[in-house]
Write a protein that binds this DNA or RNA. Structure first.
Lengths: 246, 246
DNA sequence: AAATCGGCTTGACAAGCATCAAATAGAAAG
DNA sequence: CTTTCTATTTGATGCTTGTCAAGCCGATTT
């Protein structure tokens, strides 16, 4: 854990390091852009912001003005229904864009909470739209990012609608592993930034069930868990579990 | 049921009746556009297409080229996973846009199947993108439509992750009712175009459970079901059921 | 009118997960 | 170092929903 001094939650910090030089550029908004459009994106994304663990990037009900790209760290998004129901709708790691769900009603429908000390790039949406009007490949890329979110939400729907607890957790671990790999980290060893309860909320399970399935996986030598530290020992078998109840 | 003659599945029919005169325009893509942008949309959306019951608007794996607005009728979209799992990801009525999930990989990830004889407007996506570059309010509206899809998928995630069978079905009926109302139909009396199995697939339940809950609702005088014909008798109580397990 | 077929209903039973409860482990605070 | 607190693990039990099976209803065909 880093040891930053306390920072007021809304402290906007203009840091250096442009999109064009960001080492996440191939995962994030700039992916595959021509030089010229990349330069313009650099001009657009000037504000960066730190979030200490537990702080919000935005809250449900906040007016929608910007998208937020995770520059470093880890976030969860949390939907709070009228009827008081509360569910984690996603976990977001470096290079991923949050806030697309706010466009539809000009308000953020969910909370975005940092699960570790993190950094965000703030992308003013109206200005991004302006820019995409002159930058076709950026436009297409924005649409792909939105579409990808739809696809990934639908695959969570599939998971919640048709998988049993073991399959859900296997799919979850494989998904994390794959995203870690895409970021150059080990595919088989990482820290879970979220609690068992948050995993359960995301997967439609109770925390006890998450814990039990982890233990079962450990007994079968599929993984090694110790608190938040996870080692994945047998990816092929996990894959088999996911594809089981076809 | 209408009694059209058999029509080849891919028969493209250029019908008249432009977006600007469509009585669904306030629900669909043209919603809230200035005159000029509306005219351009009319020029873009020239191809309309009939789908007989059971026919596909598009299939999983088809190259993505167009969005499809439902002009009349009723569709389901169906995701077929690598591992053979099959799930209904949505039901789509007049004025709703299908195919946004295809942008991300340039292929449609799911099937879209007509559940009754239907008509579609074909919206070539590259040309739509071109047009939105010159039409800011159309651009914003497209983004809102995509964002709305994300929001609605997330509320299905919430439903699947945290509601019990009765709550899911109550929420489902209320959602249908509300969409019927928005289209000028009765909020309390309509035909279900889908089978119990399709409802179950969408809601993460087995068809027997769907049937049992309908029967229970009927016994409690919340609804009157007879096959596909539904009358909703007590909307407030259904709302209470949805908000129960907060 | 009888037969056939797909979709629906209902019952009996079992499996999976939730709930409740208690114990343990680690981290943070005193 | 001890205390406190939160997150996690594990066990016992029960509810909800799935599974299997049989019968029914309505539409269409013969």
């Amino acid at each position: 854990m880093t040891e930053l001094k306390a920072v007021p939650e809304l402290d906007h910090v203009a840091l250096r390091s442009a999109c064009s030089k960001c080492n996440l550029r191939e995962l994030c908004l700039p992916s595959g852009l021509p030089e010229e459009e990349l330069d313009q994106l650099d001009k657009l994304i000037r504000v960066r912001r730190s979030c200490r663990k537990g702080e919000h990037a935005y809250r449900a009900g906040d007016p929608f003005e910007s998208l937020y790209a995770v520059r470093a760290g880890f976030f969860k998004t949390n939907l709070l229904n009228e009827d008081g129901r509360d569910q984690v709708t996603g976990f977001h790691m470096a290079g991923e864009v949050m806030g697309l769900d706010g466009i539809s009603a000009d308000r953020h429908p969910c909370d975005a909470v940092a699960l570790e000390d993190s950094e965000l790039c703030v992308i003013p949406f109206s200005r991004l739209e302006e820019l995409t009007r002159e930058a076709p490949s950026l436009q297409r890329h924005l649409h792909k990012i939105m579409s990808r979110e739809i696809v990934s939400d639908q695959s969570v729907m599939m998971l919640l609608g048709s998988m049993r607890a073991e399959e859900r957790l296997a799919a979850f671990l494989l998904n994390l592993s794959q995203r870690m790999t895409a970021r150059g980290y080990s595919p088989s060893e990482f820290y879970l930034r979220m609690t068992r309860e948050e995993i359960g909320s995301y997967l439609g399970l109770k925390l006890e069930t998450v814990s039990r399935v982890f233990s079962r996986f450990q007994n079968e030598a599929l993984i090694a868990v110790q608190q938040k530290h996870i080692r994945i020992l047998d990816i092929p078998k996990l894959r088999k579990i996911v594809g089981q109840n076809c």
